[in-house]
Computed example of a mutant assay.
Amino acid sequence: MAILKFRIYLDEDDAVYRDIVIRHTQNFQDLHFAILKSYEFDSKHKATFFRSNDHWQRGREISFEKYDKPYVVEPLLMHEVTIGSEIRDTNQKFVYEYDFEKHWVFLVELINVSKEESSKTTYPSVSRTEGIGPQQYGTKSLLGDKFADIEEKYDLAEAADGFGTEGEDGDADTDDGAAETHSEEDF
């Protein structure tokens, strides 16, 4: 059984990509869900693949379902079409569009064909992740949601104006009212 490895680039930035391995007998719906999962997107929106050439021109459409829009040719349906049946050459390309309102566009390129199936892998599977993917709704910081937890835990907002001086604890006065000073030898 052939195992196909696709590289899925974010259209806007080819430094951000995911490699997905999938059996040639699996369908485009399996690839659709694998792409969404690899970029941490939900599956609430419309999606379609287009067969493509080396110039990323859109050809025959392979859609999640038949949508209420004009078609030049009726689309194929993802759950009915196996990936292997649409491979025309060794570097086959597809354009994948998700969420027709936001127009997330991904470039899908076949980068490897192998006859070696791993018994430890559940197909489809992400074999490589490169770059920080976009956040589906809004912007994503480098630290993501974890930064808010760090900020709350260490109360980083309190020190926003700058750094305090060493030993400053808000009540640095001694009993006689004078500030306590230290020389380097004290430390």
Score class of each variant (00 low, 15 high):
I8S: 05
D13A: 05
D14R: 09
V16T: 08
V16F: 03
R18P: 03
D19Y: 03
V21K: 00
I22P: 00
L31T: 02
H32F: 03
F33Q: 10
I35L: 03
D42F: 06
S43D: 15
K44L: 12
T48W: 08
F49L: 01
I62M: 00
I62G: 00
F64R: 10
E65S: 05
K66I: 13
P70R: 00
Y71R: 02
Y71Q: 03
Y71I: 09
E74C: 11
E74V: 10
P75G: 03
P75T: 01
M78C: 02
V81T: 05
G84H: 06
G84V: 05
I87V: 07
R88I: 11
D89Y: 13
T90A: 13
T90P: 07
T90H: 14
E101I: 14
E101K: 10
H103C: 06
V105T: 06
K115H: 13
E116S: 10
T121Q: 14
P124T: 08
S125K: 13
R128A: 09
G133T: 01
Q136A: 04
T139C: 07
L142Q: 10
L143R: 13
G144H: 06
I150H: 03
D155R: 15
A160C: 04
G170F: 09
D175M: 13
S183K: 15
E184K: 15
E185F: 15
F187N: 09
